[in-house]
Design a protein around this nucleic acid. Sequence first.
DNA 1: GTATGATTCAAACAAACGTTTGAATTGAGA
DNA 2: TCTCAATTCAAACGTTTGTTTGAATCATAC
Lengths: 225, 225
Amino acid sequence: MSTEPHLPQSETRDRILDAAERLFMEHGFEGTSMRLITGAANANLAAVNYHFGSKDALIQAVFRRRMTALNEARLAALDRLEAEAGGEAVKPSRIVEAFFGTALELAADAEHGGNTFMRLLSRTYNEPNAFVRQFLAEEYAEVMDRFLGALFRALPGVPRDEIMWRFHYMMGAMSFAIAGIESVYATAGLPCKEEEPSRMRPRLMSFLLGGLRAPLPDFGAAATD
Amino acid sequence: MSTEPHLPQSETRDRILDAAERLFMEHGFEGTSMRLITGAANANLAAVNYHFGSKDALIQAVFRRRMTALNEARLAALDRLEAEAGGEAVKPSRIVEAFFGTALELAADAEHGGNTFMRLLSRTYNEPNAFVRQFLAEEYAEVMDRFLGALFRALPGVPRDEIMWRFHYMMGAMSFAIAGIESVYATAGLPCKEEEPSRMRPRLMSFLLGGLRAPLPDFGAAATD
DNA sequence: GTATGATTCAAACAAACGTTTGAATTGAGA
DNA sequence: TCTCAATTCAAACGTTTGTTTGAATCATAC
């Protein structure tokens, strides 16, 4: 109150961030107007430009708010594993657990918006929006370097291309896991009850590890097929 | 020319569909204006409304053009497998090959827009746009029914929930495989050369089958963890 | 040629967009 | 009470949006 200048962290700012996070997840960036955001946040239309400067800056703020914490948690988990291993290579399953488990924990937190954010993040992977992608790539740079490097060391016999692609596939599987199952199966007359959060983690993790451990593809045989 | 009324399948119509397909893939539905589409298609602004009626109708037309063929090819492949099996259950790996292999073949066709469309389709999974989702769900209904049913028969010991989730995960992995790897790893100083199309299929298929065959998750142990 | 239906075109429409403005309102310190 | 900065607000800004219009152009059949 005394040392800090004047950063009441305006309650309005947070309401706008929460509303924007949810609406971006539901309708995308271009599909969400400032009037929709400020309306849902019970704020004046001009509030976004006052607090953030522009819509683009708001988008970045929405990501920055959670992304930093997520990536720090991931790096901390990897640090812990590498410290335990003490020079030895960390087991691949532990590395995968550290990366994707951290994300799933955030996605399981529905009360503080973690789930909303992870669904927004999943959605954003497939939106080649120029500056959002640039922003995400910068945020991910160190994390990717560390985790892929750990996997390279853990799987010295496996080509690095192969590891990167499998990691990429795992990201896709996680993305869909978080997005939920109702997307396509809803109208199909199939039972599609939503996943209980505590079941998602072991379910997905088993699949991911199965995929990671799969035998290497035989390009020679398949190329002529 | 004589029996058909007047359907010259206006060359303009196709140019608009091609341009829209590509631009929707790059910028999303809301991020792509009619002026951008008609500009890229060398057509007049009013041409979209003349040939399709509205922007929403154009979106549906873009999907309908390829989706029907893709799903028919999938069903035909499954028909073939079931005929070969002659009453017996089809091997899970063959079922997965039929569903995802068909999609990958379309994605490998870069010349006639198949690749563009598959990337658009992947992107659309994560866009809960109301009426596009409805449209996709209807298009997928029969295919999902058939393929999941075949998997249920092929894996009688596995809970149906588990099969549906793993199929969903596989869709996510395929989605990311088609979208390409450069999304996140670009700025990270990692080698991220694009995949040669012929290598994508065995690479992804090996991962998918590894995930499908993974041991079932142990919910009991993990729930208390 | 002339008529007819299909297609293209430039121009305009109202609505929604992100942003800016300048005056109100607020709240704490002097 | 007065001050001053932070915040809110209604109103307007100039663009861009999807769509419509009515005349021009094209191609074909008579």
